[in-house]
Nucleic acid binder design. Sequence first.
DNA 1: CGGTTACTTGATGCATATCAAAGAGGGTGG
DNA 2: CCACCCTCTTTGATATGCATCAAGTAACCG
Lengths: 243, 243
Amino acid sequence: MEPARAAEVASVGTEMPEQCARCSVRQFTVCAPLDAAEMRRLTEIHRFVELEAGAPITEEGQPADHVFSVSIGSVRLYKLLSDGRRAVTGFLFPGDLLGLTSRDRYACSSEALTAVRLCRFPRRPLESLFADIPKLERRLLAMASNELAAAQDQMVLLGRKTATEKVASFLLQLSRRQEARLLPGDPVSLPMGRADIADYLGLTTETVSRTITQFKTTGLISLQPQGRVALRDRAALEECAEG
Amino acid sequence: MEPARAAEVASVGTEMPEQCARCSVRQFTVCAPLDAAEMRRLTEIHRFVELEAGAPITEEGQPADHVFSVSIGSVRLYKLLSDGRRAVTGFLFPGDLLGLTSRDRYACSSEALTAVRLCRFPRRPLESLFADIPKLERRLLAMASNELAAAQDQMVLLGRKTATEKVASFLLQLSRRQEARLLPGDPVSLPMGRADIADYLGLTTETVSRTITQFKTTGLISLQPQGRVALRDRAALEECAEG
DNA sequence: CGGTTACTTGATGCATATCAAAGAGGGTGG
DNA sequence: CCACCCTCTTTGATATGCATCAAGTAACCG
């Protein structure tokens, strides 16, 4: 047994793995409510997975053997129609959960949008833990409920908002999600391309681009290097977003 | 103690209330996995609520004090934009759950679409039961996951399907949901009006009407009394639905 | 620095919205 | 029991927001 692990071994059952102790989004993940001993139980079954930008993570319809928690980076969730049309059903950021389903198949395909680090939990062992750690199941239910509420907002956006309202809502959504992770809400970083945004909002890349240009022209936002967007007039954007 | 109750009294803790024993959709509801003793625990806190068509059930943003299970009838879920535009986020049928949220406010407004009977559970006592009946929480998580998968399908529909595809998908969805309740999948009954369908599909009533007329003309469906739709060519509808 | 991909901008077209009005049920009261 | 009225649905004519088609421009990468 190598010296580097001595401390860990000395505290079996009470200390969590170093990587988790250092995890910057633990308080927002599925792990949030767990104490050190429970964390240890959970980490007995998990594995870290690192992927580069563009790598596939899950494929719609394939066996849902794992649940993932995004640790670093961003992920795009999507579904395809038979003729190739694509709908992006969501973007995931650190702390978000991926692959939760009650069926035995993934509901969506997903790909790394940037380089990502994921915590991967095999599903059966994870579900077995529910019996010993009810907090874990409680947490998953809360996260699923939140996702459901977000999905309903997205349905309103897709079904009843104009292109301008959609793009404004999108920028504000990303801003709020940054704030939820205790990051500044401005500038907003856009790790995804215009095509991803378009497929998420039910628009075309051209319309997204034109709308962003319009916001830029009217002084609501300004574009910064590396896909960052500064919100110059948040109140006006909020106004835009609601109609 | 009246004779009619003798059998029930003789088996306290093992028999479920008569109304639940007779419930035609119990196997599809939150109650599905519970045994008689657990059912009794659950029914200690629930109350039956009967409402006539059009009655409000929940209002978006109001305190989420209760969770409901639809027992008889249909419900429409919706959200409003500030200028009055409406998005219907879902229709509920017997067995479906209403009002599940991890926040303290309802995410959607809801109204009875027909006369309905609901089982109403006060939220705090319900959550207290989770500790004693883990199956209950497991069941809610499964139901929430299913709703999430349905919400993702709806996002694809709203964001990327044409009017024809939307209406075809809608008819098939209702048909499948009837089948899931072990009812015939054909004819499909439409308890909601064209305006509800339009707000659910991100269309106008006129477009919904025209599309239905077109399906009728091309022999894919035929309209029957009381808002029933016979699926004359299911395969062609499926084809329509996917593009 | 050249090649490639992503983004932006412009011109045109179409699917669906909007505006308008005529049928069709469905319930109620005479 | 029928006639009327109200609401919902259907149908028609026109308008428009966004898609599509088509270049041009900027950003990125090797």
